[in-house]
Amino acid sequence: MTVEIELRAARVRYGPLEALHGVHLPVPAAALTVLIGRNGSGRTTALRALAGTVPLSAGRVVWRGTDVSGLHAHERARRGLCFVPDLRAVYDTLTVGENLELAAPDGDFARAVDGYPALRPLLARRAGTLSGGEQRMLAVSRALLMPARVVLLDEPAQGMSPPVAARTYELLRALDAAVVVAEQRLPPGIGDDRRPVLVHELRRGTVAFSGEPAELTHR
């Protein structure tokens, strides 16, 4: 599979602590990549390193053969990278409709409310008044609306009911982009025939396992 973006020997430090220890992490263009691990494993830091919201202390971020390690997050966004963090992913003081309008290049956010019909009656509500699951639906909608080549999402299904979480992964698998999600554990039913799925398990800032979902469950 063609690699869209990757970390090469990536190291990230937060003060005296190193969160990633020379991680190599390829993201195939046609696959759904799932980073799993406990809190503190480095999965969120790996996403942030790809997005450019934390700098590397060593190593590189390579996007389609070009070293983009020195590009700021907003420059990577202009090139087609969408990052949905786990916190502060929506504009609290704006309405749901206004949040969606900002994410849609042409202002047409029909695809988002078609994907999440529960958002339709909430369009006039301020995003800060929504429940946790509703805010995650709104945040994930950014990925549905933006014409991105790379989509990174940190715990996209957090706070969602199981049916809505399953729907979320259906929507993500249908995106025409390289999709990377970070979760504490492998989402149920993640492997199917519609799109290849690659799993990386991180432990203490290193990659402890790489393979397909079935390989992980049989370990």
Rank of each mutant, 00 (worst) to 15 (best):
P85V: 03
T217C: 06
A29N: 01
L119T: 09
R78Y: 00
G205H: 02
Q158N: 10
P28V: 03
A166I: 01
E215N: 11
P105E: 06
R136N: 12
L122E: 06
M137L: 08
R219Y: 02
A89T: 01
S210Q: 14
R142M: 01
G80V: 04
A112Q: 09
V34W: 11
M1K: 03
G40V: 07
E155W: 01
V84H: 11
D176Q: 14
R167C: 09
L7P: 10
Y169I: 10
G65S: 08
L202C: 08
E215Y: 10
V96T: 11
G115C: 10
T129G: 00
V150C: 04
T129L: 14
A178D: 10
M146H: 06
T45L: 00
G80M: 09
L119C: 10
D108M: 02
A51C: 08
H218T: 15
E215F: 09
D154R: 00
L32K: 02
F83R: 00
M146V: 12
L100S: 09
P213L: 11
F83T: 06
E155L: 13
R88F: 15
R194F: 03
V179A: 12
L202M: 12
P162Y: 08
G40C: 03
R48P: 07
A177M: 14
Q184H: 10
R11W: 15
F109D: 06
A148L: 04
M160L: 15
L152Y: 13
A165W: 05
G191K: 10
A103F: 15
L119N: 00
V181F: 11
D67K: 06
D193I: 07
P162A: 03
L153I: 04
G70W: 09
H21M: 07
V90Y: 12
V27H: 04
R149P: 07
A139V: 05
Q158L: 15
G59L: 05
P213D: 13
V197L: 06
A103G: 05
R11D: 14
L202H: 01
L175Q: 12
T45G: 07
L123C: 07
A46Q: 08
L119V: 03
L144Q: 07
V197I: 00
R43H: 01
G128F: 13
G115D: 04
T95F: 03
I190W: 12
P162F: 05
S161Y: 09
M146N: 00
I36D: 04
Y116S: 05
G159M: 02
L47V: 05
R8A: 06
R125L: 13
L20R: 13
D67H: 06
T33P: 14
V180F: 04
L145G: 02
L7H: 12
P188F: 08
A143W: 02
P156K: 11
S69H: 12
